[in-house]
Design a binder for these strands. Structure first.
Lengths: 201, 201
DNA sequence: AGTTGGAGATGACAGATGTCATCGGTCGGT
DNA sequence: ACCGACCGATGACATCTGTCATCTCCAACT
């Protein structure tokens, strides 16, 4: 019997995924979470063999939780489940000792299959995603450039981004200019879109 | 036995929802779709009592499909399932003769329950969503203003938006300026974000 | 010890963006 | 026949953005 922990923020999807896994004879869902910051505690209590984590969770995101979980309970194999396929995210996931990476837009059987294979010690990663990740490569942005882009996302003008990050507004413009050039965009909006799709933010 | 059609683009989620509904004694999933433009044909073939439609589907979106379906097969009651809760979308849904509106972030039982109630002729709408919709009100944007905002979304500069819509670039700036003022934003990026969240695009 | 690269800043400049007043045309309502 | 609302356009203006050259400071390599 494979003991499974599952973390996914949308209740209905989570319920549905649990229903899906419960149909399998050799699996048992031992914990259901809707936030990232409860994962480690729940895992220590329920000792799952496999943890299925969504990436964007309230509290802390799935990848951060994955890193912590690997430290505190190395016996639990981690399988990440993600909606959008952002290549950059895959690299971060691998650094967090994630063993499997499945996109929600895959056939339903893939999940149970992935759980079994990860439990058996295999790595499970969508080949298309590997290709995309290699193509996209690692993020060209420095930490600050990424910070500024993230702040720009909410539509704030340059000077407000500056005060939020305690920077000079001229510096903010420089970072934005660098970021725009690096990702090959024409303006900040474009840059945000590109960086988001690549998973660099 | 309630005959259910289900349309949702992410395979795994769709599979999971089907698994969820199949657990109910009084329901039967008679059709599974992953695109909006196949909904009507599939419905005419399988004659479902209730159609569960996701909003953003490839082909045509769920609401457009809902309108068509209501015309071609009025006996099918429509239940819309959506991820983000964008108040503006609810209004469009009601105009498309949708009988129920459920967000994915609701307990799993809500779905089966919603299907049953819609089948019985009731309307099923999340109370929080109704409140949000009333607060947000109807879109303040004219058709063209919305067009321009949508075109601006991909990060194109003003003159390229203009040529794409066959407008003068000065006109584009006027529409953008109007839109920015109407939604209470400070620049185009801000306006896009606000309009998206409200479901006005 | 020297070099490289990131963080942070300044000043100058061109071009993009947002605002405003104003115009003409069309269409639906009263 | 008239009014109002939307579409489309122009010109002028102020401000915001994006680019570039240049500078300091600091940490990490070699």
């Amino acid at each position: 019997m494979i003991r499974v922990l599952i973390a996914e923020d949308m209740h209905m999807i989570r319920g549905a995924l649990v229903a899906l896994l419960s149909l399998e004879e050799d699996m048992e869902v031992v914990a259901e979470l809707d936030r990232g910051d409860e994962i480690v505690a729940a895992a220590l209590r329920t000792r799952p063999d496999v943890a299925v984590l969504d990436i964007d969770l309230p509290g802390v995101d799935g990848l951060t939780a994955a890193g912590e979980l690997h430290e505190k309970l190395p016996s639990a194999r981690i399988l990440v489940l993600t909606g959008l396929s952002q290549p950059g995210v895959l690299l971060r996931a691998l650094q967090a000792h994630v063993r499997g990476f499945i996109v929600k837009d895959a056939p339903a059987e893939t999940l149970a299959d992935g759980v079994r294979r990860v439990h058996a010690g295999e790595r499970v990663i969508d080949p298309d995603l590997i290709a995309a990740a290699l193509e996209t490569g690692t993020s060209p942005l420095t930490a600050r450039e990424a910070d500024v882009l993230r702040a720009a996302e909410s539509g704030l003008p340059t000077d407000q981004i500056a005060s939020r990050l305690s920077l000079s507004s001229a510096t903010v413009r420089n970072y934005l200019s660098n970021a725009i050039t690096k990702v090959g965009a024409h303006n900040r909006l474009d840059a945000i879109r590109i960086a988001r799709n690549a998973g660099w933010l």
